Simulated assay, not measured.
Amino acid sequence: MNKNIGLVLLTVLMMFPQIVETIYSPALTHIAHGFRVSPEEASQTLSLYFFAFAFGVVFWGRVCDIAGRRPAILGGLLLYSVASLIALFSRLFEVLLVARMLSAFGAAVGSVGTQTMIRDTFQGTALARVFSVMGIALAVSPGIGMLAGAALTRFWGYQGVFAGLALLAATLIGWSVIKLPETRPENVKTAPLMQTLAKMIMDRGIWRTAFLVALFNINLFSYYQLAPFHFAKSGLSPEMLGYSGLLLTLGVGIGAWVNKFMLKRNANSAYLVLLAAITSIIGSIVIAVLLMINSKSFMWPMLLIVMAYGIAIPNILASALAHYSDRLGTAGAVLGLFYYLLLACGLALAGWNQHLGIVLMCSSILALPLAFNAYFRGR
């Protein structure tokens, strides 16, 4: 096993799926106008993205176990680059949807591939701390994506966004070819997919994990999905939407720092997830009230929402596959399938509802009993 794993490159690769999605967010209103579709239809591109992402996680997870971690990551990045070029030159909304789904399928390798490589190399407390550091890095992702997307949209419209995405993927391909090691253990067990799927379907702990990950991600991505249209209705510019990404960066960063601080003092992971769920409910209630009175300051309580995300996600993921150490790639793929399908369904409902406050309240309230259950089981 290669201990010189190259955490800088892996960190960028783990950030990649989130960055490329948040770059896309400021372009949603331009896409709705350019392709002459409704906000509801434009919003659904995000839910379709995650449906394809879910199946990409399964595919690349299997490739990780069968062919190796490095070939999987290179293949996913190449597919993403090609799909971004298709989106760049598309003239029909249906072609754009297909291109977005292909790009999501490729981007999924940034999630399952990097998590598998990290789990190859670290275990126990060290693994939790690495995921905590990754959480801090992920905190930067929304700010980078939103600001870059706003700038590209301002100067070149949604075409500039897709050109930038293709260039980013090509850059990561070159970097990975030169620097990315192979961490696949020599004695790795390529577990049968259907056997692993059947085992995990019957695992209540896996479903609790999948729902928690999905619900906290719905809170985050529903903002990227719905906020552009709330900003437009309030007369706020796409640049302001981009700057709001800095606020999200601050919030996730604070949450990740709090998480790291508490872990160093041996705080219980389940307790931190419960704390995050309560924090998320408080933030969602405030946002719902502000949107009801048409206040333009609704983005400020998002600090609480994204702080909760920064605290919860590293703790949920770090212990998610403790009982599947003999099949990490395949198990990680199946887990990803579960929570990304749940996320896609949640975002489809959010796109239909078009009310950010209601979406945040529902997902936060649903997360609370799951967090309580995990906490009391871990005591």
Rank of each mutant, 00 (worst) to 15 (best):
G205E: 04
R154L: 11
N4P: 04
L337T: 02
I282P: 03
L290K: 00
L165E: 01
M240A: 13
G34Y: 02
G245T: 07
L215E: 02
Y243Q: 04
R100Y: 06
G149K: 04
A333T: 07
L152P: 02
I118W: 10
G329R: 07
T125K: 15
I178T: 05
R69W: 10
N268I: 08
F221E: 04
A267Q: 13
M194A: 08
G124C: 09
W207R: 11
M202C: 14
A256W: 08
Y243S: 03
F53T: 03
F216Y: 10
Q159P: 05
S244M: 09
A374C: 08
R265M: 10
V98T: 06
L74F: 10
C362R: 05
S111L: 13
L236I: 10
I305Y: 00
I206C: 07
G68E: 07
A32M: 07
V109L: 05
F221L: 15
F376C: 02
A126T: 13
I293M: 08
T121I: 11
S141Q: 04
L180A: 01
E40G: 08
P301W: 05
T125Q: 14
L250F: 15
T183A: 11
T209V: 14
L248H: 02
P238T: 09
N373T: 09
S237D: 13
I281R: 00
T29N: 07
A198C: 13
P39E: 04
M361L: 15
M262K: 12
M15L: 13
H323E: 14
I206M: 14
P181W: 03
Y49E: 03
F122V: 06
